[in-house]
Amino acid sequence: MNIFRLAGDVSHLVAIIILLLKIWKTRSCAGISGKSQILFASVFVTRYLDLFTIFISLYNSSMKIIYISCSIATVYLVYFKFKATYDGNHDTFRVEFLVVPVGGLSFLVNHDFSPMEILWTFSIYLESVAILPQLFMISKTGEAETITTHYLFFLGLYRGLYLINWIWRYYFEGFFDLIAIVAGLVQTVLYCDFFYLYVTKVLKGKKLSLPA
């Protein structure tokens, strides 16, 4: 464990908690892409199946349980409890265009052709594009609530910190996992446009609005 990976995990946890609290406190999921939340929940479920097969550390297992339960709780809030506030008209990204290629690729490019490893690979590839429905929805509505931009900032930051963690681990441990690194690069690059808007607008107290 190194400081960058710990900071990444904390950033990820902060993002998940921010979103959950935003929906719970405002009793509204306006501006939130339910499709992205479903993708994130499936990312966690497919990646953390090893919860039942391998024990790495208390930290590792407890974080996995927290991520899975928070993401499923978020999906529940969006599609059931606060369904009336779900903006389905703008959450129209065709997720099959993500899931099918990602599914195919995880069968073609993986470390080991075993069910657990293919599911892990699927999860890594899916996570790199899971935010697209959310970014697409923001581009369609032309704006995002400030709390939602903070959620996206920490979510994008987490994988960026993981990239530094992988540089650290390559240099000090000779460890590197090309699948995770390439997917992590794609994932972080997808946020670049948002990061620019976040820094130039939200951090200056303006609302994030796109030229619709």
């Binding site: 590792n60 470390h111 490893e117 963690n165 000779g174 996992d177």
Partner: peptide
Amino acid sequence: EYNVFQHDEL
């Protein structure tokens, strides 16, 4: 040798 099949990262 790091066992890549035992992913120790979240």
